[in-house]
Nucleic acid binder design. Structure first.
Lengths: 187, 187
DNA sequence: GGAAGCTTTCAAAAATATTTGAAAACCCGA
DNA sequence: TCGGGTTTTCAAATATTTTTGAAAGCTTCC
């Protein structure tokens, strides 16, 4: 077998990254393809058009279109334009921390806020205050209100970290600085 | 329609909570049933056996068994025993914060660590150091190493928050105390 | 207005994930 | 070792999610 050229190596590394990020995508509850499109744009750092994505990832036009739209909504990619070109090009946010904040924001919105909402609704379904409130209702309300409190705290923390002021990294770094913990390095 | 009894109200509230938590479960990437089993144990606060779960949630024995096992692995429920009874009973962790930490721990394990692992592997696929390393390889490595850094930070933060020392809540509260942000209250 | 070039939509097909249920395994006590 | 009560396993059935592809929709330029 002939030695690989540099660009073949790079291509392979990109593909492996795309695969890894795609797999994480499905774990994170987004479609694998959507994650792969994002991975490709991120890892190349280039502005690509739909046909290039379809070609490289072997996906249909419909799928590419839907994935791009979703990624735009998440705020992790944006449209770009090439001089006289008619078609749309897309670029990924290159600042990893900004990307991470966008993801966090969206995930809090999907994974925490609806729960807080529901908890509020559930807690209206029974009286837990009056003199006549049965013990069991108080117990239930106790559990639900604790849970609501914790998740509200999480949502607020999320906003703080991911918020537009971009303080996330600094806060985190500060926290960590206090007392280092080890973390395995090798693959 | 006759007025509902107190216990019917409570039952309905429990059901709505179970439903809400179950829905969140699927958003979080675990099976809806698994989340529902957990919700039921949590919301009642009682020790229940498999047949009771099956009855209340209308699920099969196999499903109940697998869900319970998974919940035990997550560390959010534990086995209990009733005096002379032969069968197993299960109780949910009642401390919401402890529960949250268990979930966080597990999610970092599934959603962050494999990625860090993969990033390490991908970065071994090309030379980016030597004098001969092409510009494109350096760029690629730059992107990947930044991403690795961010996710390692996240993993470390997660450990800090969720770690066995149980400092999570305090740290969070401290952070929040500094500069309050508003959060909508009504359902 | 019309055609070319692109993108979006969406119903149907394919791929995945979850659930069932019955058989196998397990665990004790007799 | 056997038998009854209980839990686990896992292949098949079901349900859900994702992907495709072709038709419909835009937009821009002639």
């Amino acid at each position: 077998m002939p030695p690989e050229t540099d660009s073949a190596q790079l291509r392979k590394a990109q593909d492996r990254f795309i695969d890894a990020w795609g797999r994480m995508g499905s774990v994170w509850g987004i479609s694998r393809t959507m994650a792969e499109v994002h991975a490709l744009l991120f890892v190349t750092g280039e502005a690509l058009c739909m046909d290039e994505l379809m070609e490289r990832l072997n996906i249909s036009r419909g799928n590419a279109s839907m994935s791009l739209r979703a990624l735009l909504e998440w705020g992790v990619i944006s449209k770009a334009h090439k001089d006289g070109e008619r078609r749309d090009y897309y670029v990924a946010e290159q600042d990893v921390w900004a990307m991470f904040r966008a993801i966090l924001r969206e995930r809090v919105k999907r994974e925490v806020e609806p729960l807080i909402e529901s908890l509020g609704e559930v807690r209206e379904l029974y009286p837990s205050q009056g003199r006549d409130a049965p013990e069991s209702a108080r117990e239930l309300d106790q559990r639900l209100s604790e849970m609501q409190e914790v998740f509200e705290l999480v949502a607020t923390l999320g906003e703080r970290f991911a918020g537009p002021s971009g303080q996330g990294l600094k806060v985190a770094a500060k926290l960590l600085a206090k007392a280092p913990t080890r973390r395995k390095a090798k693959a």
